[in-house]
Amino acid sequence: MPSTVIPCLRYRDALGAIDFLCKAFGFERQAVYADENDGRLVDHAQLTYGDGMVMLGSVRDDTPFARHMVQPDEVMGRETQCACVTVRGDLRAHYERARNAGAVIVDDYEEKEYGGAGYSARDPEGHLWYFGTYDPWAIA
């Protein structure tokens, strides 16, 4: 069953972010809805990775919800949460792909005491991502 919790992000260059997330992290475009008045703005996009998904759109200030969100560079690069993505397969290759595509590696690839391995990275607009092989559903 696909995940029922889906992170939602905003990007100043949403189309560029979609390209980066697909190239660097292996996401796939499921749906991208561009603003009819300005083809550079993204009203809504859905990117999948395995059974998971992230949704994203362009930074805007014309909706009530938009007032609740800030970008990492507006809060000194800090985040209150990050997307955690379970990688099924070669995590070292995933790490190298991300690094070679320009992801800023925050925590290098590391084997974890509790099982699996992981690393964390920032995308070009500073959003924090964690990728690992640990599958919390496997212990349920």
Score class of each variant (00 low, 15 high):
M1W: 02
A101L: 07
Y95D: 00
A45I: 06
E79S: 15
D135L: 05
A93F: 03
V42F: 11
V85S: 01
E28D: 08
A98L: 04
D43L: 12
P124M: 04
E113I: 06
A117P: 00
A138D: 09
G126Y: 05
C8V: 13
R60P: 00
A93Q: 14
A34Y: 00
V75S: 08
K23M: 03
S120H: 07
D13G: 07
S58Y: 11
A45R: 01
G116D: 00
T86F: 08
D35W: 10
C8I: 11
M1R: 08
Q30N: 09
T133W: 00
D35Q: 03
I6M: 09
G115N: 01
M76A: 15
R60T: 15
V75M: 13
V104G: 06
P124G: 05
L9K: 01
V5E: 06
A83W: 03
D51C: 01
G50D: 03
D35M: 05
L21M: 14
M1A: 14
M76Y: 09
I139C: 02
H44R: 06
R12P: 02
T48L: 12
K112C: 04
E113N: 07
R122H: 11
V104N: 05
A93S: 11
A34E: 15
Y114N: 04
Y33S: 07
L47M: 13
M1V: 09
A24I: 02
E113V: 06
A101M: 07
D13C: 06
V85K: 01
I18Q: 14
N37Y: 01
R88C: 03
V32E: 08
Y109H: 13
R29K: 15
L56H: 02
R88Q: 14
G89C: 07
A17H: 02
Y130L: 14
S3I: 08
T133L: 00
G57A: 11
R122Q: 15
A31M: 15
W137L: 12
V42H: 01
I105A: 07
G118S: 14
A17C: 06
T4K: 13
A14W: 06
L91Q: 00
Y119L: 11
C8G: 12
A31F: 11
Q81V: 11
S120T: 15
L47K: 10
D73S: 10
Y49E: 02
V32D: 08
G116S: 01
F27I: 10
Y119P: 01
S3K: 09
L21Y: 11
G132P: 00
R97N: 13
D51H: 06
A103T: 10
D107K: 13
A45F: 03
F131M: 15
